[in-house]
Write a protein that binds this DNA or RNA. Sequence first.
DNA 1: CAGATTAATAACCAGAGAGTTATCGATTTC
DNA 2: GAAATCGATAACTCTCTGGTTATTAATCTG
Lengths: 107, 107
Amino acid sequence: MPEPHHVLFKTLADPTRRAIFERLCRDGDTTVAALTARAGVSQPAVSKHLAILKRAGLVRDRQEGRQTHYSAELDALAPLVDWTNRMNGFWQNRFDDLEDLLKRMDQ
Amino acid sequence: MPEPHHVLFKTLADPTRRAIFERLCRDGDTTVAALTARAGVSQPAVSKHLAILKRAGLVRDRQEGRQTHYSAELDALAPLVDWTNRMNGFWQNRFDDLEDLLKRMDQ
DNA sequence: CAGATTAATAACCAGAGAGTTATCGATTTC
DNA sequence: GAAATCGATAACTCTCTGGTTATTAATCTG
């Protein structure tokens, strides 16, 4: 039931959370403190977003002394790409279908 | 401020709404009644979802007598594809960066 | 024209979730 | 060892949104 792309849509729908992920994609390995500095929200808020990103498989964390480094797990986006491709595939199939073509002509 | 991909993530994050969009991609032009039949929610709920999909540019509507036909606007997904590509691009760039390579080696 | 059907809107409700402050455990530093 | 720093968790609040039922406008049908 929980299709792989669903958790991605849910997780990336929040702008703050998506911004954190984008930053990790751009800059790579980054500490929570560094992320908080530019997130525009409190540190606990950032930690919560990171936990959600982690559960979605979008980020990895790595402990180093008292600080936690996070980095993007880019492969995790695959189901999203697959989904958009599938939508495009449906579209293509419908063009091959003569029945549908006729349905479209009389609109 | 409202980046083009943001509205897409927001709109497609809801499973019911995404299911409606998927159905329109698969089956093409469909009436509200037909969509409601399989949506698992009430007709007003479906209408609201369709309104949101429409504002996001993901669907078109067409009046025919007393029924409204909706169809998917597939090009609207482009900003989503662009975004994932951009994330992948960042990833590639970081591999070209020697500084980052070193940073990754000592983890 | 009366009754039925279609879909949008209004008004409302309940749950989710993103934010906050406060706190705590675990480190590092002095 | 005391003080400071880092980040996760707890507890709470407030808003946003997806759902509902009721209603209405518009169209079709008998």
